[in-house]
Design a protein around this nucleic acid. Structure first.
Lengths: 201, 201, 201, 201
DNA sequence: CATGAATGAGGCTTCATTCAT
DNA sequence: GATGAATGAAGCCTCATTCAT
């Protein structure tokens, strides 16, 4: 038998690629550096991925899969009231992403990648799908709050968009500026929002 | 940033570069294509800019200068109350950017570009300076609101960060999805936030 | 004005490529070496040819064009009788190719190239066309000889094929073995053949 | 030329290599494809052959050995007269190669391969040796014909070169053009040649 | 000044060969 | 012995930059 196929090797490459792509961007990434990061020969990468672009897609896929879990955790955020659930969601989202802020560069790179190359249209739709799904979840909580008389009437989808946007943007800001405290800003913001939503007693 | 005689030609190049960079991203942009877009010979570009990176920075600079005007317009937003001023600022910002959404790809590319290359650190700080300045302006309005008893006490800087973040993110969303209506979402959000800030009568 | 386009540069590259391809074969040829042979930068080759294969085609084309002239010279071979014309043709062909024996490797490479690659089907047909044309010319002389009572009846096309084949093969042999004298062998052969064709007085 | 235990496996590899080399040429052949054709693991090939070039040589050797038998058959061609023996030889040669025309690409590839690489000089001499041997055999028959008064005096070696050349070339032509009938052309040619050689009664 | 032909450093990728299993 | 996963040298090609005109 030949050297047994190490199923962990593909993962190692994707992990290496994730790091390097995040650090250098797609165009700035040298396959050679990914190989070094994965502790693999340059040629080995091509045993698992047809091309640099293919590897990029795979990396993207992996991020999506992993963030799926985070989103699930976020969506599972519980609380007695809609208010509490919204707060929990925001907190869960921020906290799940904060330790992986380095991936933000990668996410940006993906977003940016939607700009060019026809084959990368995939990114855009996959991204939008994930975004839409998440927005629906947030909107649902707001709807619940309105239905049970907790919240004033409001366009839930629109508000959800703005909320998620602010969360995203705060994380982005944190990635740009290591001194920035996104969690505090988020909580301050949510407190005001929830206050604004609340029906006067 | 060599400055040569004909400023009209320099502008033409920057304008061409802006379009191409926005369309293709930094790495995806070919100097040749910029030259074509500016109706200039390829060599001419190097009469006005030392390198591709230099041109990229000049393009960024141009965006900053132009958005300066928009920011000024935003900051000039008036209103009798802090509430009204905040609303006006949000509206002004959104409306000033909406017609230039195509530049958003470029802004993204700038953010993304801050990731790598030591020379591009310049971008990052310039960007952060602009951001900080704008946040201060927003925070000041919130402070005013608190001082004149219009708003409940709140961490103005943190809230300003979250607000600006949401505005940015909504524009980004609009760039990604042409059907998205960022202005409506922004207004809905601002209404809730202002309601949350308002001191009960 | 930019550096004036040197129309001789394309030719220089093709000439260099001809030499290197002949020496090393298609696969054995390094673009870099062609560049050196043409005294041109590596990149310059790609200003004139899209790819290595494209350059190979161009080289082939050039050979065809040049051998066209030789074939024309061969076909123009005169003589009072069909016998003399056939002799002259053989001599002319051999003599026109002998100084360019180094191209034989290239011709072989072209033939060999017909083996693989779908795009190279062109070679095969171009080659066959040239071959057919030449065979017709030789066959015509034989026909003339039969018509004017100089030659015994014979299948002119078949004989032409065999004659041209022997000429080709003798040149090939000369290319393989520098000591071999193809002209002598050719003349000996032609003498026998013409004797065999001749009607008894 | 490492010789390992299982000669059947070695043969299988050579047979596979022969097919693939003939189809794709030396440079166009992937070791992996040879392995597949031989139903062997890629690594196994290196148990039997030091390198791709070594395998190529072994393939050539095999061809030589097999064509040895054909040459022997050709040389064994009998006949009452030198004329008949020459005719028989030509016929035997053509008929023995016709069913193996697909190998012609490989032979071409061998010729072509003699062009480059110092290590391949081996091919060239082996080839020339075989060629020389065969030419001597043909020349001997012609000599016999002259000695027994059947043929006019002629340079037997030179004529032999031309005859063998034409045979080779006709087979080559048949390989290039499946519609071509080399046997007919050969017979026509030989008839003329023998007529030319014959002493007038 | 303006131009674009020329250049070559450096990237991605292939594939013969090795070697752990 | 047999295998095929792993490897990295080496090739083709791109494209920012230079420079002769």
């Amino acid at each position: 038998m030949a050297r047994k196929a190490d199923p962990g090797k593909r993962d190692a490459i994707v992990r290496g690629a994730t790091r390097i792509f995040a650090q250098r961007g797609y165009a700035g990434t040298r396959i050679m550096e990914v190989a070094r990061a994965a502790k693999v020969g340059k040629g080995t990468i091509y045993e698992y991925f047809r091309s640099k672009e293919d590897l990029f897609f795979a990396t993207f896929e992996q991020i999506m899969i992993e963030s799926e879990a985070q989103v699930a955790a976020t969506l599972a955020a519980t609380g007695a009231t809609a208010s509490e659930r919204l707060s929990s969601m925001a907190d869960a989202l921020m906290r799940s992403w904060l330790p992986k802020l380095d991936l933000y560069g990668l996410v940006l790179e993906f977003w940016s990648a939607t700009t060019a190359s026809p084959g990368r249209q995939l990114f855009k739709s996959a991204f939008q799908n994930a975004y839409t799904e998440f927005r629906q979840a947030v909107a649902t909580v707001i709807h619940n709050g309105m239905e049970n008389g907790e919240f004033e009437p409001v366009d839930a989808e629109q508000l959800a968009s703005a909320l998620i946007g602010s969360w995203d943007a705060l994380l982005l800001q944190a990635w740009l500026d290591p001194d920035f405290k996104p969690l505090d800003a988020c909580r301050t913001h949510m407190q005001v929002v929830l206050q604004g939503l609340a029906k006067p007693a």
